[in-house]
Design a protein around this nucleic acid. Structure first.
Lengths: 210, 210
DNA sequence: GTCTATATTTGGATAGAC
DNA sequence: GTCTATCCAAATATAGAC
């Protein structure tokens, strides 16, 4: 049972009655705050991510938040960076970079799509955060991993003569944009079949091909 | 000179000193509120669109807002619908539906892109609004015009044998997603050349082609 | 390191004069 | 229809006990 609000906190034994054993949970608390923030934004939007809501969702007191972060905004930014990191570690695993670029593009595209789909909360959070004014304070560091992945792919394909020689950011856009679009549709209830996903990957590939 | 804050309002003669001639500005005030809201969201994000900020930007008192809208949320929704309406009226004008589907796709794609680019505020506002929790209350009515435009195009191209027979929402996504992506990049300072835009339109077309 | 309690500011919305 | 003045609730952040 998770401690998500005051009532449940009673049952979880965390109402000012901590002993020496439970007091060394500093890192764990920080972690719970990061995840709580992401969960709330994903579920109810940036506006809903108040300090009170985040603390309640994490099962800690509001004041505790400020022991781990300087401000609410700092917490949200930290949460965003961590999420991006985790999703792309997952997506990058097991991708063979030695195969032919067209094939590799399709597999990479699907891998990123599936990584996000496996964690829709992460995607919803990321999207909402990115559209908020807070994104400007983040500095864009979080997106660098994606850019590198796509950039490597592009180089290989241009070298092999498979892909158009277009700027990396343009090809990156043509690659990532449909992923976002399809995932947003999924969040609204649309279920894409395997065939449709494959067709989408084919279309992205067709857009890159010479 | 526009009356955007209290100081300027002094010079514009609107501090409780309205006469018979200026009192019949009901519709104009409503209009200014709609535009003020959009401008603030575009510039500083949804979080910045407080009743105080909107009223100040429109050059009216905070209380006046509630003479024209039931709530702040209603005002934002109304503003969003009006913006979508206006942008797509602009984009749809002068498009020849009798030309060959591939050519027509490219021109339509560019027309929508340019319509948004001509009014970046509208695009920024639309995007931020769409990612907010408020979007769920809007009902999706605003997007129907786009769906129809793309749907007609798809039918013509399938009939002529030019396009793949994929679901309308999938093709719609492959069509619209790059537009959003490229515009967001422009808002961050990237300038797309004519050649690059044409290449992007070609890629979208390639994705639709059989 | 966490909690409770509280200070302070800001936000949405209303009342009533003109 | 608009303004001024105000109410009330909610939000961020801090203080101080344990």
């Amino acid at each position: 049972m998770r401690c998500v609000n005051l009532d449940m906190a009673l049952h979880c034994g965390r109402l000012g009655l901590m002993n020496a054993a439970t007091q060394t949970t500093g890192q764990a608390t920080r972690e719970r705050l990061l995840q709580a923030a992401a969960r709330i934004v994903a579920r109810d939007g940036m506006e809903a991510a108040t300090t009170a809501a985040i603390a309640a969702e994490a099962g800690v007191a509001e004041g505790t938040l400020y022991r781990h972060f300087d401000s609410k905004d700092d917490l949200l930014i930290a949460s965003y960076r961590q999420m991006k990191q985790e999703v792309f570690i997952g997506a990058g695993q097991g991708l063979d970079t030695s195969m032919a670029p067209p094939e590799r593009l399709k597999l990479t595209w699907k891998a990123i799509y599936l990584a996000y789909r496996a964690n829709k909360d992460a995607f919803a959070f990321g999207h909402r955060f990115a559209e908020s004014a807070l994104a400007e304070r983040e500095g864009g560091e979080a997106g660098r991993a994606v850019a590198r992945m796509v950039g490597d792919l592009r180089k290989a394909g241009i070298a092999s003569g498979d892909f158009k020689n277009l700027p990396p950011d343009l090809l990156g856009g043509l690659f990532m944009a449909p992923i976002s679009y399809l995932l947003k549709a999924e969040m609204k209830g649309r279920k894409w079949t395997e065939v449709e996903l494959d067709a989408a990957a084919d279309s992205v590939l067709a857009g890159w091909r010479r």
